[in-house]
Design a binder for these strands. Sequence first.
DNA 1: TCAATGATTGACCAGTGGGACAATAATATG
DNA 2: CATATTATTGTCCCACTGGTCAATCATTGA
Lengths: 216, 216
Amino acid sequence: MSTWIRDAWIDPVKLTRLSDIRRKELRQAAFVVLEREGIAGATLEKVAAQAGASKGIVLHYFRNKQELFEHAMREANAVLCNAVVARLKRARTPMERLDAVIEGNFEEHLFLPPLCHAWLSLCAEVPRDEKLARIQRVIHARMRSNLLSGLRGLASPEVAEEIVLGVTALIDGLWLRLGLQPGSVSRERAVRQVKDYVAGRLATRQPAPVGLASAG
Amino acid sequence: MSTWIRDAWIDPVKLTRLSDIRRKELRQAAFVVLEREGIAGATLEKVAAQAGASKGIVLHYFRNKQELFEHAMREANAVLCNAVVARLKRARTPMERLDAVIEGNFEEHLFLPPLCHAWLSLCAEVPRDEKLARIQRVIHARMRSNLLSGLRGLASPEVAEEIVLGVTALIDGLWLRLGLQPGSVSRERAVRQVKDYVAGRLATRQPAPVGLASAG
DNA sequence: TCAATGATTGACCAGTGGGACAATAATATG
DNA sequence: CATATTATTGTCCCACTGGTCAATCATTGA
């Protein structure tokens, strides 16, 4: 564990305060436990064990179980989000932006059953946890915004709005599929699926394609 | 409750044996509890209370908690499935079959947040319950088969397979959206979304070779 | 009518989980 | 060095849960 602390100190993202390190350690442990146990089986003791600490310490850093898992969801989302943001930085054209969002959502080292299982468990709790619901709204808002910025100029606002709904639903659905039948959908297939969807929607009946400069 | 029994006896579907009635009653109660409490909060006592019975009776009809919720999932799926089958019967052309599946999956009295919440909770348990996983596989297989029968003649087998994945993922994703943000997607919008997707996929480059799709 | 079978209940049990807390170690701070 | 703050542990408590069981109550069929 001491080495972990060393690593964390060297880590570019400043996690100077020891408490921050522990908190990160714990919410990551929480997520790992969630992956294999689900929300019903994810107990404080198991999380503590996973982090190599005692149950007491978990409650020392988080007011209660709920708060712990809320932070776990924030963490997981941040990881996913970073993947998208990183790709987004390199994107120059609107189309590249769209692809960045799509590909970022199926990052090879993230689009995996365990992560999906944990994510699903958290989503299932959203209706009963206002904090989780808020996090969800934020996530979706950012996704929407990213997609809209890519769609500007490629489709009318109304059509863009529909495409956003379609893309987000498709992505979620493909993740769900992965979770329910691991191996049934590869990263490549998922990406192709969403890209083809966008292509199909942009191709059909574009009402008066006003020629805004799309490349540049 | 006695009237329920009367109704059940009159019910065309033969539920003659009293035990069958109780079992149905209980798994429906289980589902209702799941809707508001989630898997973690769904206790045998609550299910019993919801059914107006004692906890003992629940375990009299179901070996254990797991079995109860497995049956609850079967029940819920059957309802959804019947909606599709009913519409499928009236469909004559392949296109009508497709629409039957799509519209059946967003039946007005079924496409509702509570149902979605319960469904989500069950899906989240799939990875840890082989029985649930099997039920899921059956559900998906039937869905796939229904869609393929509608797509026969409208697309090549390979393309049809891709469309099936897309449609199922889209449907799941739209349900998920409903669960996470109730009110954000109406039945009509969902149906239109999926139909437009199918239209878009059927319109673009019919004989898509088994190569890399060139999006853009 | 009466026994047999099934339905239903309530009491009970052992295990567990979340959380509070006091005690102790470690660290920082003046 | 002394003191204040923080980290960490183990213990304790209580509510609750899944599950068992013996004891009633109801139904039925001979």
